[in-house]
Design a binder for these strands. Sequence first.
DNA 1: CTGAAAGCGCTTACAG
DNA 2: CTGAAAGCGCTTACAG
Lengths: 330, 330
Amino acid sequence: MRDVARMAGVSLSTVSRVVGGQQVAPDMAERVRRAVELLGYRHDAVAGNLRSSNRASSSIGLIVEDVSNPFFAAIHRGAEDAARERAVVTFAGSSDEQPERERQISEAFLARRVDGLVIAPASTDHGYLVRDVDAGVAIVFVDRPPRFIDADAVVTDNVGGARAAVAHLLEAGHRRIAFVGDDPEIFTAAQRLEGYRLALSEAGIPADPALIRHVSFRAVDAADVLDALLGGPAPPTALFTAQNLITVETMRRLHELGLQRSLAHVGFDDVPLADGVEPGVTVVAQDPYAMGRRAAELLFSRLDGEGGPSRRVVLPATLVERGSGRIPPS
Amino acid sequence: MRDVARMAGVSLSTVSRVVGGQQVAPDMAERVRRAVELLGYRHDAVAGNLRSSNRASSSIGLIVEDVSNPFFAAIHRGAEDAARERAVVTFAGSSDEQPERERQISEAFLARRVDGLVIAPASTDHGYLVRDVDAGVAIVFVDRPPRFIDADAVVTDNVGGARAAVAHLLEAGHRRIAFVGDDPEIFTAAQRLEGYRLALSEAGIPADPALIRHVSFRAVDAADVLDALLGGPAPPTALFTAQNLITVETMRRLHELGLQRSLAHVGFDDVPLADGVEPGVTVVAQDPYAMGRRAAELLFSRLDGEGGPSRRVVLPATLVERGSGRIPPS
DNA sequence: CTGAAAGCGCTTACAG
DNA sequence: CTGAAAGCGCTTACAG
């Protein structure tokens, strides 16, 4: 910037004003712009921010389990689009469901002075963020609510969605419905299991522990879990798979076994091609793009000074019927 | 930091040394650490960088067409993982195939002083980046090579992959093979069309222009394009779909029409569930995770001072046979 | 090993 | 409208 000032024969202040779009005499501004062009000057937004009063970096950080999981990738895009409307740039990182890693990524983003963080939490304790919240960083949780910290959150109605999924299978006459989900340590998995239990109890059907299974490595375990369920003494006639990767792997295995027309199946989360197979796979769909967008919007509203108690936005999960849920018990 | 120094009763330099992990007397270091803890001090990496000699921000920017497209999301994860190994943080942005937007995102990242950029280019002219390259920013292109700028790139062998796909269909006896791909303005689309033509000409079959179709809005058009092909006077007996979203939509439509067993089909790019349907859909698979990782590694090697002419890494696209390519002509 | 001082690239009162 | 000076939060020679 100094070089630009020298070349244009003006002061640093003037260059700063031209770059910042403030009032400057047209001829001077023109001289400055020419110098900028000639010297290939690139503004340093980071240095600029240091001295500026509001100290906004116009950047936010997004932390999800895995940026390459389609569900989180859609959240990412939603948040990016909301950020972009405000000329805010987005950091993204994958926690792989590891609290330690989530924390490292958070701190790396915070050290770079992001204005806010959108977090799909892996940690169970977000106390480490309070000092940043106190310092004015806006934090919004998405997909799962925070713990040990008061903050805005955007979540899906997991209980209601799971309940609707299982109710749909019950309607088709099923009484032996298996639950295949993530470890119940994961908030959404626990909630979906609760919805499953709720639907059963409403129908007066006792939950059979043998039909409730948890996978550790989704794409890897899901087929084995299915095989185990089917090989048991009293196999299920219907499946509720409570996570997108589990649903995909279960679909794959059902087709492999040629059972896709004889076992009813409903998944939580929409998956690509669920409507491209025969029969189409019924799901309760979340709207991850909307979740990401809403989360970022909430974040910006806080940055804009909106006070008040923390807000919880609950988005519905809607049943998308495609056929697989109407297969009758065999 | 000043507060920390005051509280610990040491100089700013000492605090800086403790935070930076340099040699400091144990008791002083301990006092500083306690003050850091008590005050909830968060280091400002950005300010620190200003004065430091190497001026590395330990951040990179990734620009792809759409962070929520599974192909690019996998590239993203590959780049993130390589970056993370070096404690480097990643910005990500979606260009939506718009050169103007790509440029805006690039400049936003550059203004925040990223050390490097990984770009899946939408633009045809990257001249605007030369000043940054001159200033030491490392730029690596991924998926498509750059134009009007000399830079490293990681691409897939699109011609070879497409050729293998079409050769596979030719082997099954097909002579009327349709090509459905993106606008040939897009580099990869043009390359894949070239591979298609090459395979046909090697088999001594003239390309029929009526069988070569381009879609504008992948998920939207692909079904219509398929319908148009099938409704024509001399419909194809086999399909080569040259992009992941087109492949998915084509699969969906084929199943809808009940034609998945009568029309041979090979896609470019692997897609979820391609092995979960009947028949499994044969594809030529790229390795987007590896592409992203390699691109970031190349970037860091440049940052480490590796000189020499720009490098082009070409990764193979491998045929993954699942059945749909062996359906004979009807 | 430690501290006082200068300076990174910028913005912002403060005078003019 | 413009410029000289101070200062943002830090790091880094330079003395001690």
